[in-house]
């Protein structure tokens, strides 16, 4: 008789405990907030794979929550969902960290390229200054100047992109500007050498 009482009591306790199982709203909110933070850190651009993993895990966790919600109240268990939500939160934090690190890396690359491109432009201008003074050679180097103007415009666009935080665009534009400026320097150097050779020959 005493055993039967215990069984009933346990049943009642289980009933009450089961009836109290609630969706882990706090964990859901925390995971969503972590994903939003990752997005704010541009993880979708700078750490797309990590961001996708966090996003997928959150969606799977939310699906698990709804799966439990679909059950009769007494049979619900959100333990698995909670584990998944915690995992999503961790992954979102990882995505955020990766995005920050990658963004910094791209920023550094862009900074380096912008500096190199600016130096390359300055070098071209220096070579242009070395060209014969006065009207001599003006037309011959005017063509290079036209190209250099285009490089400068592109470099300005790269700087604008950099200042607005779009480091990927800045990096691409700076790379293109650097490449073009270097080819102009080579072209100009060749022209100057040609002239120097002719001058020596004339002497």
């Amino acid at each position: 008789m005493k055993g039967l009482r215990v069984v009933v009591a346990l049943f009642m306790v289980a009933l009450l405990a089961g009836a109290c199982a609630k969706a882990p709203q706090q964990a859901i909110d925390a995971a969503k907030a972590a994903l939003e933070e990752a997005k704010a850190a541009e993880a979708h651009r700078y750490a797309p794979q990590e961001f996708a993993a966090a996003n997928d895990t959150l969606n799977a966790a939310l699906a698990e929550v709804e799966k439990q919600n679909g059950k009769f109240a007494l049979f619900r268990s959100y333990k698995k969902a909670q584990r998944m939500l915690a995992q999503a939160q961790t992954l979102a934090a990882t995505a955020k960290s990766a995005a920050i690190a990658n963004k910094e890396k791209v920023k550094n690359e862009a900074t380096q390229l912008l500096q190199s491109a600016a130096e390359a432009v300055a070098n071209v201008e220096k070579l242009l200054a070395k060209a014969p003074r006065g009207k001599e050679g003006r037309e011959a180097i005017a063509a290079i100047k036209a190209d250099l103007d285009a490089v400068k415009s592109n470099l300005d666009a790269a700087n604008s992109a950099f200042n607005s935080g779009d480091y990927l665009t800045a990096r691409d534009k700076a790379q293109a500007s650097l490449s073009k400026a270097n080819s102009l320097a080579e072209e100009l150097q060749a022209a100057i050498s040609k002239k120097a050779a002719l001058t020596r020959k004339a002497q």
Partner: peptide, 23 residues
């Protein structure tokens, strides 16, 4: 000594091509 505008146009196109190649 062709029209400078054409050279400028070409230089811009070449820069775009560089960016396209990077992409």
């Amino acid at each position: 000594p062709v029209n400078h505008y054409y050279r400028h146009q070409l230089a811009q196109a070449e820069l775009l091509a560089e960016e396209a190649e990077a992409a």
